[in-house]
Design a protein around this nucleic acid. Structure first.
Lengths: 302, 302
DNA sequence: ACGCATCGTTCTATTTTTGGAACGATAAAG
DNA sequence: CTTTATCGTTCCAAAAATAGAACGATGCGT
């Protein structure tokens, strides 16, 4: 009797282009994949993959076999989905990624509430600001914060929130600079704090309420992707920073941070999530997506 | 990651109506099936089979799952067939049954020749005169010798040879009985040898060359299903026996056995084989079927 | 040319799974 | 009612599979 799991391993090894990348993606030892495929080839009496340390190419017979194996996996997945659809309670593992700053504002609490409400759901969360390859990394949901326009993609997109941005500075810095700036060019000699990586351009893209746009290049004295750190530095008077309004409401209300050029708004950012496809999605993933969309919607009514 | 083999076990357990019969048919421990299905149910979070020591019923959700699992197995089998079709050399395991007497005449030598010619084919042979349930026992080919008409069946039938029968006795017995019989009724007081089981009727069904049929009941002095033993006893003068012409040609030619009532022929028997279906048949099975058909055809030209 | 990073394969101590025995459940037969 | 045969489940010693280390292969960069 053939080991049907070996057909799965074959498909995954091919999709990832090698045993090592497939092993990393699946969380299993590459030695297992090497052994399983070698045994499969021996049992079938054919070579499915011509491989060396640098080459990993399917044979012609491997190609033919691959199509059927993939069809088999689709049927197996359909079987599992049948069960999920018939079940009333979401369960299973959700693999989720989220930028760190976003996680600390609202998403962390949302996930905690979600997991409290659906105790049979397991969430594997990676908090990271790096770009995620959703398909290659087997991620179910990737949360993102990006400015318009969103880049074209094969992934399905769900917008959660349109996030306003604000340039702010501490009252102390404003005083030291001789008062608030009157126009965007006045900012060129103000110290800036940048939420980017060191190699990226440091630009404030500002749009006037009347419509025109100005790009203000600046040389930052502090560069990090961590928004909490940037806010802390801004409050200490280190420089001007562009941050989401949502994380500034207290300080603006208390006057510990002042809005800079309020009639010139930085480019808005969309909080959104992406996932590979509606096909193959377990109900728990769909429930989480809807849960977060609902939560953000209720926040924006406040 | 779901264990795809569990889907196979689920389908097989259901098809055989229990873990014990499925275990026997597949040659694996019922405890394994019990464990695998229990784990599968736990992982899916549903009950697939309501079972006790006497009841084995799929749930509704089990039914839905079953259809998809079976579709998956069909795809897996298609994958394997793809490989077989692309291979030039027959290989794999063939499960074969054959009546003992037939095996000793020709089939044994045929199988030896076949295995010599196709060294990558493994043959599991059961030599037995009992009735074989081809589907339940997972047999690829069952060889049979039966009189016309062949019984209706879901199995595919391939006739290999139309086997003439002959009543024979030794010259010594003929002398002791006062010469050859003139008509069938004369045989009633001749000692007979029966190729049957003790509970079966002992009847010679004789058909005249002009068409009429006579049934001659006899009380055998020797009953066995082993045709070689019957022939040996006949040659020793123990009685009259009905045997296939094919195993008598030497003795008839040498005169060590004489044809009794040559114008009354016993019912002919068909040597044939049955198999479950052309779908799912590995090439090696098809090659063996054709091999035997060719061999019997060449024998009948002699 | 050499060093390095990463690959697939092989080895072996460890982990997981299995086969078969034992057990309780349960229907059928006497 | 008791006995028997057969079922599915659980247990545990034995068998099989695995993870991770080690190794050789190989392309790339210096």
């Amino acid at each position: 009797m053939q080991d049907l799991n070996d057909l799965y391993y074959f498909v995954k090894a091919v999709e990832h282009g090698g045993f090592a990348p497939a092993g990393r993606a699946l969380g299993i030892a590459k030695s297992k994949l090497s052994r399983r495929i070698a045994l499969l080839e021996e049992q079938l009496g054919v070579r499915l993959i011509q491989r060396s340390t640098r080459h990993f190419l399917m044979t012609e017979v491997g190609h033919r076999y691959f199509e059927h194996c993939r069809a088999m996996l689709i049927e197996a997945e359909a079987a599992r989905e049948t069960i999920e659809l018939l079940r009333s309670e979401p369960r299973g593992i959700i693999r989720l990624t989220c930028p760190v700053g976003l996680l600390h504002f609202h998403v962390g609490q949302m996930l905690a509430d979600f997991m409290h409400e659906y105790p049979h759901v397991v969430v594997y969360l990676e908090a990271t600001n790096r770009r995620i390859d959703v398909l290659a990394e087997g991620v179910d949901i990737a949360l993102r914060v990006r400015p318009l326009p969103l880049e074209d993609s094969d992934l399905v997109v769900r917008v959660l929130s349109d996030r306003g941005q604000c340039l702010v500075a501490s009252p102390d810095l404003v005083t030291r600079m001789g008062g608030l700036p009157a126009q965007p060019d006045d900012l060129r000699h103000w110290p800036g704090l940048s939420r980017a990586t060191p190699q990226e351009q440091h630009v404030w893209v500002l749009q006037h309420i009347a419509g025109q746009t100005q790009n203000i290049r600046f040389t930052p004295r502090y560069v990090t992707t961590d928004m909490v750190a940037l806010k802390t530095a801004a409050m200490a008077g280190a420089g001007v920073v562009q941050l989401p309004l949502l994380m500034l409401s207290e300080q603006l209300k208390a006057g510990s941070l002042l809005s800079v050029l309020p009639e010139w708004a930085p480019r808005r950012e969309l909080i959104h999530l992406v996932y590979p496809s509606r096909r193959g999605m377990i109900p728990a993933v769909r429930v989480l997506i809807d849960f977060m969309a609902t939560r953000y919607a209720s926040m924006e009514e406040d």
